[in-house]
Design a protein around this nucleic acid. Structure first.
Lengths: 215, 215
DNA sequence: ACACTTATGTAATAATGTTACCGATTTTTT
DNA sequence: AAAAAATCGGTAACATTATTACATAAGTGT
């Protein structure tokens, strides 16, 4: 898997020592998934923790009525703090994760992770760093829900999406945006229409083209 | 400090081994604060991590306009995951913490914590356990903001408060509730009035008495 | 060509947020 | 003790967001 080795080094060589990189190469399991595929379900045991080599994973919460809500993304070179924590404590997953685009992940078994926690300071640092980053991401998310107006949140969300996909043309429906922001499709349509009138974007069926300052 | 020793054992003896309890007693610093006092400010470095012996600490986020928003409580026998993570990574605090009632805390220096992480499995377990619990608490909080109606959220919040204080008579203003839930005082007054008409509580100046099913 | 599904637009109504103002009570100052 | 200032809660008017229902348009499969 020469490709994956290259991707591993590209994404993680600045934070891990060579020996750990070699061990990761040897022991982690490479996993490829197409956009949209479920990577982890709510309630499922966490036997392995992910490291993203390519693409991004979407981490969501699903409520009792089946509505989803976007918590954060795990991007290239990152890990998932909730997986680390739940894996170590043998706690079932409180979140659902899906592939945002076509994704390549390394899975590290929880036992392996334990070993590396003791053996490699850089791994321990990576895990703790991920914890801090993710706590702060979630807090910022709460900031947004609690304090920001919806039109700002939509704009920020579209810009995020555009950064992750690397394109200003997003393939997404109004319903999907509403789900990810935990609100209603009608509200999203209304506000997108307003943004279109303000020449900030163009609307097509299942597509949104970001213009000017939003790009 | 015989009292604090008793409190320490009462709160933590079921999760820590005797030797660790002895070390905590010897090395942690006891800190008492009256209700309302600030324990940690946003942006402040985290040099020590807290363990609550008596009372509860309120953990909030403050936005750019100075509005606060309640993230979670740290109660007797618990630690603070964000403090653990930020302490270890030398990251400044993303949250503000205040005493919810009169509180007694033990402060453990970050260096001490590092030592215990390696030396005592029960300490490591405590830290990781706290991480999981707090992640899930924050996710549940997001569930509430994103999915629940305000009247439910108010009722749940009042019940939480009543459990923490151990009384069905709460000393609190409408403004405080609004702050904690990240909403507006007028809205809270309106909904509390409705709950009073439904005979679920009684309103007084700076006091709310929970009735019947809410108790 | 047809039914079927999905995506978006529109309108009416409900819930929540915002601003402004009032009177009542408590606290502080004089 | 009287006056002034600050805090608390009630009310109204209006803005924003949520919910429900329905219409129209665009894609899908037979």
């Amino acid at each position: 898997m020469q490709n994956d080795t290259t991707a591993l080094h590209e994404a993680y060589s600045s934070i891990f020592e060579p020996e750990l990189l070699r061990e990761i190469e040897e022991k982690a399991i490479v996993f490829n998934a197409p956009a949209g595929q479920t990577l982890m379900n709510m309630g499922q045991p966490v036997n392995a923790v992910p490291m993203v080599l390519k693409g991004a994973a979407k981490v969501c919460r699903i409520n009792d009525d089946g509505q989803e809500f976007l918590l954060y993304y795990v991007k290239k070179g990152e890990g998932c703090a909730i997986a680390f924590a739940c894996g170590m404590m043998e706690h079932e997953s409180p979140i659902k994760s899906t592939a945002e685009d076509d994704i390549t992940i390394l899975f590290v078994s929880v036992n392996q992770m334990y070993e590396w926690m003791a053996k490699y300071p850089s791994w321990k640092k990576f895990v703790m760093d991920t914890m801090v980053t993710e706590f702060i991401d979630m807090i910022k998310n709460i900031d947004n829900i609690a304090f920001k107006k919806l039109d700002d949140r939509i704009v920020n969300h579209l810009i995020d999406k555009s950064k992750i996909s690397g394109s200003s043309l997003l393939n997404i429906s109004h319903q999907q945006i509403a789900d990810e922001l935990g609100t209603n499709r009608v509200v999203i349509s209304r506000l997108l229409k307003k943004l279109e009138k303000e020449k900030k974007l163009l609307l097509f069926r299942n597509q949104i083209k970001l213009l000017n300052e939003l790009k």
